[in-house]
Simulated assay, not measured.
Amino acid sequence: MASTTKGHEQVPPGEPMTIGQHMLDKGAQMMQSLKPIKQMNQHVCTFAMYSHDMSRQIETHHYVTRVNQDFLQCAVYDSDESNGRLIGVEYILSDRIFESLPQEEQKLWHSHAHEIKSGLWVNPRVPEMVIRPELENLTKTYGKFWCTWQTDRGDKLPIGPPSLMMSPQPVDLGIVKIGLVKKRDDKYNLSTDTMKTVRTDLSEPTRLNPMADYWVKHGKGFAIDVDDVEMKKIAPFP
């Protein structure tokens, strides 16, 4: 089956949905609770970079569920349109919880302080004064973002192992391309530079953990490979 194109966006190969499928989906939606999805109460637009190739930068759309004051979980899409593709998942921890992780685990996480204070992290169409208390919390958090579908390289399906993503940082490799930011700002009629100015007094962690944003100090990213391993088998029943 050939893939189809909507605008400049490639959609997965497959036949169009039938009327029967639409009716089934609508009926299921009316009868099922879909409780986990209904807990998503924030939309965040920001940018991310591949840990193994920092030159690849993407705009991301996080649909956020706050589980408690120390833990959030996000479904990540490549756009906020109805045909947006689910490209990964990000988990977000408070600095208190992050500090309790083993150092080898901390290497996989990135800080959010710069991303937020620089105005790159936005909640589209939500006034800054409304979201301000949440930003105060989020500047002191760390995230782990796995990308499972590399749509930026033209993949029509989720191919290969997941890729670890990193957050923008105030260093050469961590600066988001001007064109990407302008495109986002124009879409939502906002100014990243203005938000950066009004966010200068947002608090940050007392000490950014040196194991987070590991690539900044060590120049090394992380890539996942797939290995064949011996399968653990279930013992036969007596």
Rank of each mutant, 00 (worst) to 15 (best):
T5Q: 12
T5A: 04
T5P: 00
G7C: 05
P12R: 10
E15F: 11
T18C: 08
I19R: 11
G20L: 13
Q21I: 09
Q32D: 11
S33E: 15
S33Q: 15
L34A: 10
K38S: 09
K38P: 03
K38L: 13
Q39W: 11
F47K: 01
A48K: 01
Y50G: 02
H52P: 06
D53Q: 11
E59D: 10
T60H: 00
D70C: 12
Q73R: 14
Y77H: 08
S79P: 05
G84V: 03
L86P: 13
L86T: 07
G88M: 05
E90G: 05
I92V: 15
S94P: 07
S94A: 04
D95G: 01
F98L: 00
E99W: 05
L101V: 03
L101C: 07
E105R: 11
Q106F: 09
W109G: 03
S111L: 07
H112G: 03
H112Q: 10
I116H: 05
V122D: 01
N123D: 06
P124T: 02
R125K: 11
P127L: 01
P127A: 02
M129S: 10
M129W: 13
I131T: 02
L138D: 04
G143R: 00
W146S: 07
T148D: 00
T148F: 08
T148S: 08
K156N: 08
L157S: 11
L157R: 12
G160M: 08
P162K: 09
S163N: 10
S163V: 12
L164F: 02
M166L: 14
M166G: 00
S167E: 10
D172S: 12
L180W: 00
K183C: 04
K183Y: 01
D185F: 05
D185R: 04
D186E: 11
Y188V: 01
K196L: 05
R207C: 10
L208I: 15
N209I: 14
Y214F: 14
K220P: 07
F222G: 04
D227L: 11
E230M: 10
E230G: 10
A235F: 10
F237L: 12
F237V: 11
